[in-house]
């Protein structure tokens, strides 16, 4: 039962990734092509809950590909992930999305 659930989550993760990818590119294309750009860049830090190498690879790759975020740095104790945001006014929503990805990865790895 547990194995079946894990396989289900492993199949679900690439679909979620593809959905995020299409959404990110449509947002970015809209932002670039409209003459008045609504961007407001800045940095933020997010507390990490996973610390293995593979888990961090799985986390930083979707964070770079989701709308408006680009993963920048991880400090030496692996406590915080530094993220560059394109829309600083929607900071709460974006941090919530990154935490959502983190829970999905924790479900796969554990």
């Amino acid at each position: 039962m547990n194995v079946l659930k894990k396989i289900y989550y492993i199949i679900l993760f690439p679909l979620y990734y593809l959905f995020k990818l299409v959404k990110a590119n449509l947002f970015l294309a809209w932002d670039i092509l409209t003459p008045k750009m609504m961007i407001n860049p800045g940095f933020t830090r997010i507390r990490l809950e996973i610390s293995s190498d593979f888990g961090l690879l799985l986390l930083s790759n979707p964070v770079s590909m989701t709308p408006g975020t680009l993963s920048q740095d991880i400090d030496r104790e692996r406590k915080f992930l530094e993220v560059h945001l394109l829309y600083m006014d929607q900071r709460e929503v974006t941090e919530h999305e990154v935490r959502d990805i983190m829970t999905k990865i924790k479900r796969i790895l554990e």
Partner: peptide, 12 residues
């Protein structure tokens, strides 16, 4: 700035 340019080149 450079960071926003990187958003464009990485994703699109």
């Amino acid at each position: 700035e450079s960071f926003s340019r990187m958003h464009a080149t990485t994703k699109a």
